[in-house]
Write a protein that binds this DNA or RNA. Structure first.
Length: 217
DNA sequence: GCGACAG
DNA sequence: ATCTTGTCGC
C-alpha cells in the first residue's frame, strides 16, 4: 500500500494534489549519504513505461541493488504535471528495493517548478527520503550562464525566490539544473550532484538508472 | 494575445 | 520521451 490514492483524473485534481503536498516539503536535512539512488523512466510504444532504480554506494559508486518496474504512463503529458506520468512505476520500483537509500537523485525538477512541487519533491514527500532534482534543460525561472569551470553555478530565480542552481558539472559542457526535492538544503544538493557527476555531465546514479531502464536485464 | 513549457 | 547516421572532439 502506498500514498498514491486517490489518483487524479484531471489537471485541476493533479494541481490540487501538488498544492496540498507542497506544504510537507522540508528544505533542510542530512548532509552526508551512504547509499544514493538514481531513478529514471524509459518510454516505449503507446505510453508503456519502464521505471528503474539503481542504488549506489555513495563512496565507491558501485551498484548495490537495482530494480525495474513496468507499467503504463499514468497521466497525459502536461508541463508542470509531468510527475504524474511516472510516479506509480517509480514508487513500485522503490517498494521492491530491499535496501533503503539515503538520497533519491531524480531525473527532473524539485522546487524549480511552476507550483514549487516537481517530481523530486513528490517522490521525497511520498517516501520521506531526502531527494534532489536534476534537470537537463531550463524549466522555470531565470539564471545567468555559470562560468565554464567544473563546479561553477548561478542561482535560478523564480517569482523573486531562489529555487535552484544552474551547475556546471564538467568544464565546457552544458549546465545541469539542480533543485531541492525534500529534506535537503540547496548547498548540500549542489554538492552531492557535483560529487556524483565527476566523470560525466549527469550524476552517476541517473546514468545507471537510465541505462537499466533502456536495457532491462 | 501568443508562444513556450521537466520527461 | 521518441523518430535517427555519421561525425567531430577529447
Amino acid at each position: 500500500m502506498n500514498q498514491l490514492h486517490p489518483w487524479p483524473t484531471s489537471v485541476a485534481e493533479a494541481e490540487a494534489v501538488q498544492d496540498r503536498l507542497r506544504g510537507q516539503v522540508e528544505l533542510t536535512g542530512p548532509d552526508t549519504f551512504a547509499l544514493v539512488a538514481g531513478l529514471d523512466v524509459h518510454y516505449h510504444g503507446d505510453d508503456e513505461v519502464t521505471a528503474a532504480v539503481v542504488v549506489l554506494d555513495a563512496v565507491t559508486l558501485e551498484p548495490v541493488e537495482q530494480v525495474v518496474a513496468h507499467g503504463k504512463a499514468a497521466f497525459p503529458y502536461v508541463p508542470g504535471l509531468f510527475a504524474f506520468r511516472e510516479l506509480p512505476a517509480l514508487v513500485e520500483a522503490l517498494e521492491r528495493l530491499t535496501v533503503t537509500p539515503d538520497l533519491l537523485v531524480c531525473d527532473g525538477y524539485g522546487l524549480a517548478h511552476p507550483r514549487g512541487f516537481g517530481l523530486a519533491c513528490h517522490l521525497g514527500v511520498l517516501t520521506g527520503l531526502p531527494s534532489v532534482g536534476v534537470g537537463k534543460t531550463p524549466f522555470v525561472g531565470t539564471h545567468e550562464p555559470p562560468g565554464r569551470e567544473r563546479g561553477a553555478w548561478t542561482p535560478i530565480v523564480h517569482e523573486g525566490a531562489v529555487v535552484g542552481r544552474a551547475l556546471r558539472t564538467r568544464r565546457g559542457v552544458r549546465p545541469v539544473y539542480v533543485s531541492q526535492g525534500h529534506r535537503i538544503s540547496l548547498g548540500t544538493a549542489t554538492g552531492e550532484v557535483l560529487r556524483l557527476a565527476a566523470r560525466y555531465r549527469l550524476p552517476e546514479p541517473i546514468r545507471h538508472a537510465d541505462h537499466l531502464a533502456r536495457h532491462p536485464s
